[in-house]
Design a protein around this nucleic acid. Structure first.
Lengths: 233, 233
DNA sequence: CGAATACTTGAGCTCAATCAATCACGGTGG
DNA sequence: CCACCGTGATTGATTGAGCTCAAGTATTCG
């Protein structure tokens, strides 16, 4: 995975420190729970392969997907300080993770400040993505929301080399999209249908293809910058 | 400020490192711009006194307030890696800030890994708050949104000792609230009015008082946990 | 005493929610 | 082989929460 051009190179020493920090790997199949909502996981993870997402629910069951996770994403920092009120993480496709012990995070910072810095970077980068999602649910209408999400997911997947012939794996159903965008299932379906009929994109058999990237970017008022290299923990 | 019971104590050595990291203070009056939207600020800040908020706009002017900032909040990490697409920060009341040089952040991590760890903590804590805001705009209705916001702001202000006789300073107008909650100005007004008529809260002359905290918590399905001590950079 | 800013309220409209079927499809058990 | 599910996608009809438009009412300030 470190061969991937999306990630920052790393020194041998740092790599060793990461290896020492890691306590194993974990495999979760599609639909499986990675971190239970409301429970503070003793582990941190890096997503290694597959798709996952973070979510939170209200007590009557309404669910909001907070962000989608792709290979390289670091998981679990947020509930470092949350007393019980934490997000859940679920695998959207079959997925594999590197597992770390939360209680040893400080040791890592202490031994390798550079890796601490990298983790902060990752946290800040994720916060930026959530900022964008917040603008979406707060101020974009249905068409804009869908356009924005499709471009966002496509660009991120592209970045970590998941595109094959213009298609990226898209293991989400319409309920996922609705929950991410703060829309109802039915209205999500109608909006998706509309954009697809307009020829902007295509979703088929668990794969997504963007047909009119510029139109989608303009509609969503969302332009992903060429992303800088990202550290990989 | 370090006397405030909300903040973690700190060693003399760390304090010295922070002092060295700080390059000055800055005063911004109510309504003034702290960080311009779309411009990467060369500085990081800690809010020292007053209220501020982070926001992002769509190109047609629709604005979303991302989070509110209170004394002790660390500002500017998010655009560490953002190419141009950054949030703006504005002072809601007269406010003062400690100013740090962004380019020396890594030096700080290097010299004092503990402070790096603290900054990561702060970043994770802020991300958690944005997660909550995202649930709000995505899945709560107008009444729930307002209830949630009022309790959230009150609890946080209470925590840093801004309550006087049950009142906290509330330098926001209804447009701010609307932009934070993803509602229109008019509907925000009507909802605020409704809750106030129900006797749940009172806003008067720039001060907020919570009359029925339990009712507001129940309505908003939002229960702030007793917060742990927070590091102060 | 205007002029500007913020708040308030009513009326009507619209986007998106809800309700209610229907359809497609891949199991799976008889 | 086929009837029978269960899940997810799709579509139409209806409803409603929140939007926009339009006026009015404080309040402050030069």
């Amino acid at each position: 995975m470190r061969g991937n051009a999306a990630f920052l190179p790393i020194s041998t020493e740092e790599l060793k420190a990461i290896e020492a920090f890691r306590i194993g790997t974990r495999r979760v199949e599609a639909g499986g729970t990675v971190i239970e909502e409301h429970s503070r996981s003793p582990h941190l993870y890096t997503l290694y392969t597959g798709w996952a997402f973070r979510y939170k629910s209200l007590s009557d069951g309404r669910r909001q997907i907070l962000s989608f996770l792709l290979p390289g994403d670091f998981i679990g920092l947020q509930d470092e300080f949350a007393e019980g009120q934490t997000h859940g993480v679920e695998a959207a496709s079959d997925a594999t993770f590197c597992v770390f012990e939360r209680d040893r995070l400080w040791d890592l910072f202490h031994a390798q400040p550079k890796l601490g810095y990298d983790i902060t970077w990752l946290a800040a980068r994720e916060e930026k993505m959530i900022d964008d999602n917040l603008v979406t649910t707060g101020r974009r209408n249905a068409g804009e929301r869908v356009a924005m999400l499709l471009m966002h997911l496509y660009r991120r997947a592209e970045r970590v080399g998941m595109v094959r012939d213009g298609w990226v794996p898209f293991p989400f159903n319409q309920q996922h999209i609705a929950d991410a965008l703060g829309l109802s299932l039915v209205h999500t379906n109608k909006t998706l249908r509309r954009l697809q009929r307009m020829g902007l994109h295509k979703i088929d058999g668990g794969w997504l293809r963007i047909l009119e990237p510029h139109a989608l970017e303009a509609l969503g008022d969302y332009f992903e910058r060429p992303l800088r290299l990202v550290p990989l923990i």
